[in-house]
Nucleic acid binder design. Structure first.
Lengths: 228, 228
DNA sequence: TTTTGTATAATTGTATACAGTTATACACGT
DNA sequence: ACGTGTATAACTGTATACAATTATACAAAA
């Protein structure tokens, strides 16, 4: 089958597409683009990537075609794939959209809230505060992911979950940066806590508004610290 | 290269991915899913589709992997692809999200509006009214597409355009149905006209609100006529 | 009859081969 | 030097071959 030498494709994170080689390649390239390993407009050669990851061109091609749909690479017929990358403006635009949709999501989540999910959310918040105190920011980041995805599920809408998850992926790099300052993480925890309180009280409007504010604050934080 | 017999892949519409066989297959399968040719959970065999379209498995696989990302098919490793399909609830959820984002889009479009684009928009509206009077609803549908995409471009945000275009595709089937009643088309024209007037006046808030209402009215129309 | 095992077929996963296209290098004429 | 044509190389597009996995059919045992 394959070399075996380069066979180091453990599935890190909970990204989709984890099975099969094309899924492996997909995650790999996406990570490399979002982390900035490839610079903008860099051309992605199928052979080169295949060789690097120890696979043939076929799974690489499938991955590149998917990344095109995600908007991360551009494919010119008979020429190949090149990195599109994300600008600060793109990030802000996504946050702007996300702010609206996250509000909608939380509103729906409030309407569909169950005891189990609410308990789960509070558990996540407890853990997040715990790890924040210990300054284990990697764990906080993971809990942040889980908090949001729990709400995406709770909204009970395949389309909302799909869309917001997409956005979430796009912003992974940004979140990795912002969720390193203890100050910001503490604020974020507080905001999450407030949102869950509003959900618990069944106050959809307030929860929606708080979720909206929460996302907006993230952008403000990005700008304040001149990140990117 | 290929048979030649089945070589009937003209690019209809302005869907993306139009070049190359995998693009052709992609459009084809998507169209067939959205038009209801394939029923939910139907399994899509690579060979069968390839044979039907006169291509080998390779482009079919690439297309299916892309459709997975679009959320139209589900791929189970070593088992294959099956149709996910869109429920009425999905449609409503998309409209709900779209209503918010379309408002944001129009707001941004207002801020970035140029004389050229405004002229183009008014031209589209004139044509739409013309074809409505003649009851040429296919042309109206195409102009509706163009109207929205023009606004998506005008917002000057890659991410907004990307997201709203995605939604637009999802709803293609729905729009094909709703934009057949002269009554609804006339209302739609009027709403489009009002939005453009607000844009022209530079009233972003009003334009945003009208765009929001416009999308909501579409849903009301769907429900009123018990479509789907 | 039901269950279980096994051979067989169908299907997907991956690699490779070959055709077609685009980029590159270099000689040639001006 | 500068453009131009052409051979060559590099790369993508597609088809096919082979391996691995899953589904199917059917016989044997309970």
């Amino acid at each position: 089958m394959r070399d075996g030498i380069n066979d180091v494709r453990e599935t890190k994170g909970s990204l989709s597409q984890s099975n099969s080689l094309s899924g492996y390649v997909f995650n790999n390239i996406r990570e490399d683009i979002l982390s900035g390993k490839y610079h903008e407009n860099e051309e992605l050669r199928e052979m080169a990537i295949g060789k690097e990851l120890g696979v043939s061109r076929t799974p690489v091609r499938e991955a590149l075609r998917q990344l095109e749909l995600e908007g991360l690479v551009q494919i010119t017929p008979n020429k190949g794939a090149s990195v599109i990358g994300i600008s600060l403006k793109d990030v802000k635009d996504i946050y702007e959209m996300r702010s609206l949709l996250e509000g909608l999501c939380v509103k729906k989540a409030t309407e569909n809230m169950t005891y189990e999910i609410l308990t789960r959310l509070e558990e996540i918040l407890d853990l997040s505060e715990y790890y924040t105190a210990k300054e284990k920011f990697d764990s906080v980041l993971e809990l942040d992911n889980e908090y949001h995805h729990t709400l995406y599920e709770a909204a009970n809408s395949k389309m909302i979950r799909h869309t917001l998850s997409d956005f979430h992926h796009y912003l992974e790099r940004m979140r990795k940066t912002t969720l390193k300052s203890k100050d910001r993480v503490e604020h974020s925890n507080k905001e999450h806590r407030d949102i869950v309180e509003a959900i618990k009280a069944g106050d959809a409007q307030r929860a929606m508004h708080l979720a909206d504010e929460h996302i907006k604050n993230t952008v403000i934080n990005i700008e304040k610290h001149g990140l990117w």
